[in-house]
Design a protein around this nucleic acid. Structure first.
Length: 640
RNA sequence: GCCGGAGUAGCUCAGUCGGUAGAGCAACUGAUUCGUAAUCAGUAGGUCGUGUGUUCGAUUCACAUCUCCGGCACCA
């Protein structure tokens, strides 16, 4: 006599074991129709699940996040069924739900083409129309292995072999198709109404590049057509923010085949870089850093000592001259240590903070290059803090605060925090790694930040906090970082004299706020969709004349504004004012100044904002004052 | 690096089932001196990513190669 407790607290008693679907039906026909799954005592189960003792139950529909997940998971099965019908030699492997959709990996003799996707999708629609019930059955592990071997599904059998022998596995059957799966799934294939296959790609079996490559098909699925269309439109909109497109339109940089992964910065893009650089100089100066500069080419001997050569030799560019091989620096830390150890340091000197806008190169694999986000030549806002163990906590906290200030100034409100811990390939003792990892975790906790652990993802010399942000399509990129390093100073023979008079290696903190100017600007462009706040905008003001008799006046006021440090573009072309307004608007210039007879007579300027708001005529001095104030405010709200 | 897709004028794209290519915008020239998102007319512009092969003939077919795009693996 199970008693079922519903989310509103009400209870229903049933004479015998009852399925989730039957409970839903006993509540109402609408709910029975909408039920996709059930949550029984916090476990998500099929609607066919039998409740035989007292339990809490929530009926899951497509309004619940779990419901959407079930839909996507079942759509992955639907995809696999369609593929098996059309291409019987394809073998199924795994088909998980991912953010916004799902994928399924197949082992198949050839690649799927975009044309195949259309046919597969049509077959999926057919299977939906055939409306098969989705049923669950259980098998022992060994039975399951035999079952899939018998079907010729070698990959599935291999997956099951990795599962402990005593476990019972569940299979899901819909029509002729059977797949190993934990579930739960929708009750009928007819419940899958809105899906789209989005792309094909290769993917390594078990995620290991030593293994063969499988064929992965990605798709997305939603409760109804409207939600699917809304999603597709959202993606299309997001793509318009892509920094690669905007940068072309705004004339910021280009890349060409002779220098893959290297940026040709155009004047306007370089202005952005310089604005950021000057801003960071000030921030770092305030935080007690001294700016230094170190060589681009350094003898490979140093990289051997530091450990870089052994771990990352393949990714470093090299240059030979006379009898030496020089490696182009992939980072600046060993060089900073050279400056530290160039004189005898005392504990009284610590912490020593060095900063460098370090121009580095890394020979990144060709397939990874991506606009400004992943390049081979870049400038890091690199910095190293040499300190004692006791000073670590304070320095890490100070850095996090400093980073937050910068990100806020630049218009970011949200970033993701990750703690990456010891990788397999590493230097330093376990004890030292323990200390370093704990120090970073403690700092994150001290600031009350929500962070995610990434085991094994740390640098070879130490763990790191990663500060990352998503691009316009949701791909995450690491920007800022701080890393604790107990090893490299000692490897390179850097010491200070402690209070007790003995030589000790300093702790080294590697840190970057932006990470690299290139990647950060990519994110920044997408964040603002190319419409930069005044203090960052490459061109802040466009001055345009109505007729050539206004040229001299326009020249003079442009000069006055430039003298106040504003970046002004003077447009004297013989074009109609509407044409000029349009062009500068499309270039996202924040302030447009129009000069005609009226302004000439009154000694004023007519001002219009990028958003199309007319500020009317005002004296030049007043405009300059307003703009300079806005620049200094760094775009923080006018209201506060 | 691996799998797949793509590369035609400065940009966005059309086209050629093998007979050396076309539009819009931009550029240039001329006219227009104009008040808040496109003034009009004309001109010029391409060894169809690169190389090799097949062919009477290749931008089109084949092979190789480079770069870009989407994933995968990588990311100090």
């Amino acid at each position: 006599m199970p008693v079922v407790t519903l989310p509103d607290g009400s209870q229903r008693e049933y004479p015998a074991a009852v399925s989730v679907a039957e409970v839903a039906a006993s509540i109402g026909a609408g709910l029975a129709k909408a039920a996709l799954a059930g949550r029984v005592n916090d476990r998500v189960v099929d609607t066919s699940y039998l409740i035989n003792e007292d339990a809490a139950l929530a009926i899951i529909t497509d309004k619940d996040p779990e419901g959407l997940e079930v839909i996507r998971h079942s759509t992955a099965h639907l995809l696999a069924q369609a593929v098996k019908r059309l291409y019987p030699t394809a073998q199924v492997t795994i088909g998980p739900v991912i953010e916004q959709g799902f994928y399924y990996d197949f082992a198949f003799g050839r690649s799927f083409t975009p044309e195949d996707l259309i046919e597969i999708e049509a077959e999926m629609t057919r299977i939906v129309a055939e409306n098969y019930p989705v049923s669950r059955e259980e098998l022992s592990r060994d039975e399951a292995i035999a079952f899939f071997r018998n079907l010729g599904e070698e990959y599935k059998a291999k997956i099951i072999e990795d599962i402990p022998a005593n476990e019972t596995l569940s299979l899901y059957r819909q029509g002729e198709f059977v797949d190993l799966c934990r579930g739960p799934h929708v009750p009928h294939t007819g419940r899958l109404k809105a899906f789209k296959l989005t792309k094909v790609a290769g993917a390594y079996w078990r995620g290991d590049s030593k293994n063969e490559m499988l064929q992965r098909i990605y798709g997305t699925a939603w409760p109804d057509k409207k939600a699917l269309d809304a999603y597709l439109e959202r993606i299309a909109e997001a793509e318009k923010r892509d920094h690669r497109l905007l940068a072309k339109r705004l004339d910021l940089y280009h890349i060409q085949p002779e220098a893959p992964g290297e940026i040709f910065w155009h004047p306007k893009g370089w202005r952005l870089v310089n604005v950021l650089r000057e801003y960071l100089r000030n921030v770092q100066q305030d935080a007690g850093y001294e700016e230094i500069n170190t060589p681009l080419l350094v003898d490979e001997v140093l990289w051997q000592q530091s450990g870089h050569k052994a771990k990352f030799g393949n990714e470093m560019f090299s240059v030979s001259s006379e009898n030496h091989t020089y490696l182009i620096k992939p980072m600046s830390c060993p060089c900073h240590i050279q400056i530290f150890k160039d004189q005898l340091r005392s504990y009284r000197d610590l912490p020593i903070r060095y900063a460098e806008f370090g121009h580095c190169h890394r020979s990144e694999p060709s397939g990874t290059l991506h606009g400004l986000m992943r390049v081979r030549g870049f400038v890091q806002d690199d910095g190293h803090i040499f300190c004692t163990e006791e000073q670590i906590q304070e320095e890490v906290l100070g850095f996090i605060d400093q980073l937050h200030r910068v990100y806020r100034d630049l218009g970011f409100t949200h970033l993701n925090y990750k703690l990456s811990t010891r990788p397999e390939n590493r230097v330093g003792s376990e004890e030292v790694w323990d200390k370093a990892e704990q120090a970073l975790a403690a700092a994150l906790d001290a600031r009350g930040l929500n962070w995610q652990l990434q085991p094994g993802e740390g640098a070879f010399y130490g763990p790191k906090i990663e500060f990352s942000m998503p691009d316009c399509l949701g791909r995450e990129w690491q920007c800022g970082t701080i890393q604790v390093d107990f090893s490299m100073p000692e490897r390179l023979g850097a010491y200070y004299i402690s209070e007790q008079g003995d030589k000790k290696p300093p702790v080294m903190l590697h840190r970057a706020i932006l990470g690299t100017f290139e990647r950060f600007l990519g994110i920044l462009i997408e964040q603002h969709a190319g419409k930069f706040p005044l203090w960052l905008a490459p061109t802040q003001v466009a001055v345009m004349t109505i007729a050539s008799r206004h040229d001299e006046y326009a020249h003079n006021l442009t000069k006055s504004m430039k003298n106040k440090g504003l970046r002004v573009n003077l447009d004297l072309r013989n074009e109609k004012i509407g044409f000029k307004i349009r062009e500068h608007t499309l270039q996202y210039v924040p302030y447009l100044v129009v000069i005609g007879d009226k302004e000439l007579e009154q000694g004023t300027v007519s001002v219009r904002t990028l958003a199309g708001k007319e500020l009317g005529s005002l004296p030049l001095d007043q405009l300059i004052e307003q703009l300079v104030a806005e620049v200094n405010r760094k775009g923080h709200d006018l209201e506060d």
